[in-house]
Design a protein around this nucleic acid. Structure first.
Length: 110
DNA sequence: GGCGTGACTTGAA
DNA sequence: ATTCAAGCCACGC
């Protein structure tokens, strides 16, 4: 008996379930998979997800700031992607972050 | 096998 | 209210 599911797979699975026009935070995902406060792992996993079909641009820190936009191709690509989904971003920060925040627990509740 | 780093979070001063 | 510091887990060398 052992969990074959790697932490990265769990994170990828959650991020893939993020609906369009919504965003979430690293800590929320980390907590959702049972990591508690190791939100750093989520960021690390997402960075490793570079090349995967993961909408990592929908994942931001708890303040709603695009902390990892520099990891994306180009500089404002992440911002443009989010704006393209109907989000408003000013000074690298998402406006009405609470309103566009998607709870990863939603995929577990169902 | 140990140390440092990293797209974070939370609490306390 | 803002700022500082500590905690956390996984990966790379």
């Amino acid at each position: 008996m052992s969990k074959n599911a790697n932490t990265y797979e769990l994170i990828y699975d959650i991020v893939r379930k993020i609906p369009k026009g919504k965003v979430t935070s690293y800590g929320a995902i980390g907590k959702c998979i049972g990591m508690g406060r190791s939100a750093r792992l989520v960021g690390w996993a997402l960075k490793s997800s570079s090349g995967e079909n993961i909408p990592a641009h929908r994942v931001v820190n708890r303040k709603g700031i695009l902390t990892g936009k520099h990891q994306f191709s180009g500089t404002h690509l992440m911002q443009e992607l989010l704006e393209s989904e109907g989000l408003q971003i000013v000074d690298d920060q998402i406006i009405d972050f609470e309103k566009v925040f998607w709870n990863p627990m939603d995929c577990l509740i169902k």
